[in-house]
Design a protein around this nucleic acid. Structure first.
Lengths: 208, 208
DNA sequence: TCTACATACGAACAGCGTTCGCGTCAAGTA
DNA sequence: TACTTGACGCGAACGCTGTTCGTATGTAGA
């Protein structure tokens, strides 16, 4: 079941419809409801399978900060490798998903090793998970043909054109940041965000 | 046009369909396409109107950090005040939206006042915008009846039940963080994330 | 007053998730 | 072996979505 869905995820999340999955199994849409309650549950199973691929490091208190980054990178990597799955992660309010719980527990363990209280670790883990989902969702847009390059470029030009139409002093900074948003700087943005957040966590931990 | 949509946004984003909006204007769905190219453009107009409500502080270099927080809080506040609009923000790849550009410019100005390079400010602004959208989206789920309380509680119990079914040493931390995730701690989580990130930014700025 | 143009919109299309009830097939009993 | 009974798989249909096409209507100009 899940296996058939993964195959379909490879041709875009929008293509993962009950009809399309059923077609892959050479049957009708109604038959799927024998194995799955509804489409949401199917999405949950897909997400669980994907997230299970993210590695969980053995905690090493000496380099907990690097391990936190590694954990986040891993989550992002597997999500981006399955374009569209990040959207599913957002739609699930309370994750009763085994692999998600394992990832959460690993994150808490690392953060506690870094000297944070349980409450601080909870909040930090929440923020990091939020960022991982957000980054993966955004990144899925580029790697997948969700939005074709031409369309994106056109909108970018529209944006610049609009800003130029106003007094130049209205957008002194925005006009020059376009170069920082290419696909090449994507991982650089991620690393920057991780560095900044972990630097902040160390400041907080030092006050405990 | 936008006005009629806002009225509808008050009964949920899912209710904002072309037919429902047309009905509100006592006409058919086809008539809307005379004013708007498609539903995405309509969503963009809605987001622009909402985001325009977020206040933009006059930069004061002496308290740039507090002003950055204030800016993010404002963005989140107006989005949460219009439940469901945060989802729209995620679907828009390149924001050719006036109010969005103004918010971005304001953020860059504040961050540069904090001693960051343009590149650093760009990356930091991106991360903060991502977090604002992520938080607002998550928060919309609680304030709106998207997911009824009973359902959420049930899933929470399922989660705990699952974790208890495994060896207790598997989830030593996760089992005790439930109390930190009530609706009351929501703003606390936000403030923690902002404090941590800004503490990190100061570390980065100090190295320049 | 009659014509010509642009605008508004009713109806229809293709797709979606989900449900109902019929038809078929397999297992249990005589 | 033959018959009956039960459950299960799934074809077809429902109500919904965004969008398009062609017609009818209303208005402005001659």
């Amino acid at each position: 079941m899940k296996t058939a869905l993964e195959v379909l995820a490879k041709e875009g999340l929008d293509a993962v419809t009950m009809r399309r999955v059923a077609q892959e199994l050479e049957t009708g849409p109604a038959s799927l409801y024998a194995h799955v309650a509804n489409k949401d549950e199917l999405a949950e199973l897909m997400l669980d399978a994907v997230l299970a691929e993210a590695p969980i490091p053995d905690p090493d208190p000496a380099r907990w900060d690097e391990q936190v980054k590694e954990l986040v990178r891993g989550q992002i990597r597997v999500m981006v490798a399955h374009p569209g799955i990040a959207r599913v992660a957002w739609d699930i309010a309370v994750p009763v998903i085994p692999s998600s719980l394992r990832q959460g527990e690993a994150m808490l363990a690392l953060l506690r090793a870094g000297g944070l209280t349980l409450k601080q670790a909870t909040f930090a883990g929440d923020a990091l998970a939020l960022y991982a989902k957000a980054y993966a969702y955004e990144a899925s847009g580029w790697t997948w043909g969700d939005i074709d390059e031409a369309e994106t470029a056109k909108r970018g030009e529209q944006m610049v054109a609009y800003m130029r139409s106003l007094p130049p002093e209205a957008f002194p900074n925005m006009l020059h940041i376009g170069e920082f948003f290419s696909a090449e700087t994507a991982t650089e943005r991620l690393e920057f965000a991780l560095d900044v957040y972990l630097a902040g966590l160390k400041v907080v931990a030092a006050k405990n």
